[in-house]
């Protein structure tokens, strides 16, 4: 029997007995960042593949959401800060060792870029739109002319943004549940899948929906593989990693994780999408909403469970 107590009395808020320093703001921000990364990635990718005409929702309508949720995500990130008036210190340095630092810079680049992207399509989407100022009109024609260049930058930044949401967590070696190299790719794939779900919700074209359903199905399969791979890695790891995995395998997060994330968020929408692709009538809103819900749950569970895991000594 081994027992450990604080003789001197220690009960620091949000730290004892379990770390809970990051509340709801962080998982929501990671989620919104992932969704935006997915939307912008597909917008850029299909521009580079020359499919502007066939995929109006991917190009124009879904990206409207990206800058809105990015700004919202940044706002939640700001809410999480405890020394708020000093937030600008983030933008006085660039620290490559700190994922939060380069993540903040990437957000500072991709948020305005996504606004430029949406701006370049404003007149196509809303014929009555008027920029009012000559400078903005000039800027618009520049953006339209350079759309493929912007798409290149956007694809790269979207991948960095998507993978950063996972690396932000995986860089903490003191939290064994987060500290695994698959978490970055896993969050990236999950973000892209949720981005594809938004496009599915917005799209009205049969061709676009079929294509995005196929892509989403592939992403779900990869995500499932990564999740199993992650848990296998933990089970074959050191004592702290085994303890981390046990939260999901028999521990307090077992049901929430396997039912809400894996079953309802991945397996069930994958089944529905397969049925739809086979020609059955399935309202697209169901798998899309389930994927969006599963992605959110996944981030909440990972952030909360990860903070509980720690080194034992």
């Amino acid at each position: 029997m081994k027992e450990e107590i604080f003789v001197s009395g220690r009960n620091i808020p949000d730290i004892d007995p379990f770390l809970n320093i990051w509340h709801w703001q962080i998982p929501i921000y990671l989620y919104l960042g992932g969704v935006a990364a997915g939307i912008l990635f597909f917008a850029g990718l299909f521009t580079l593949l020359g499919k502007e005409k066939e995929m109006p929702a991917t190009m124009k309508w879904a990206p409207i959401i990206a800058p809105i949720i990015l700004v919202l995500g940044l706002f939640f990130l700001f809410l999480d800060l405890k020394h708020k008036l000093y937030f600008w210190q983030l933008y006085t340095t660039m620290r490559f060792e700190s994922p939060m630092s380069w993540g903040a810079w990437v957000l500072m680049a991709i948020t305005p870029l996504s606004m430029v992207w949406v701006g370049s399509y404003m007149k196509e989407m809303f014929p009555w739109w008027d920029w009012k100022f000559k400078v903005l009109n000039l800027f618009e024609s520049w953006a339209i002319k350079n759309r493929s260049n912007i798409a290149w930058v956007m694809v790269v930044l979207a991948v960095i943004l998507g993978i950063y949401t996972g690396i932000l967590l995986s860089a903490f070696n003191a939290r064994p549940l987060w500290n695994n190299s698959i978490l970055g790719p896993l969050f990236l794939v999950s973000g892209m899948s949720t981005g594809a779900a938004v496009i599915l919700l917005v799209s009205k074209s049969h061709y676009e929906r079929t294509l995005m359903s196929r892509i989403d199905l592939l992403l779900i399969v990869i995500e499932l593989f990564f999740i199993f791979h992650m848990i296998m890695g933990f089970r074959a790891g050191s004592a702290v990693q085994i303890a981390a995995a046990s939260l999901f395998v028999g521990g307090p997060f077992t049901i929430t994780f396997w039912v809400f994330v894996v079953l309802l968020g991945l397996l069930f929408p994958a089944l529905l999408e397969t049925l739809e692709l086979r020609g059955f009538k399935v309202p697209v809103i169901i798998p899309a909403i389930l994927i969006l819900f599963g992605g959110l749950m996944f981030r909440f569970i990972m952030v909360e469970a990860g903070q509980i895991t720690r080194y034992l000594y």
């Binding site: 730290i15 320093i21 990051w22 800060l81 939060m100 070696n173 939290r175």
Partner: peptide, 12 residues
């Protein structure tokens, strides 16, 4: 310090 809490998370 901006109070982001990253260092609190990182400390074993």
């Amino acid at each position: 310090c901006i109070g982001c809490g990253a260092c609190i998370q990182s400390c074993p």
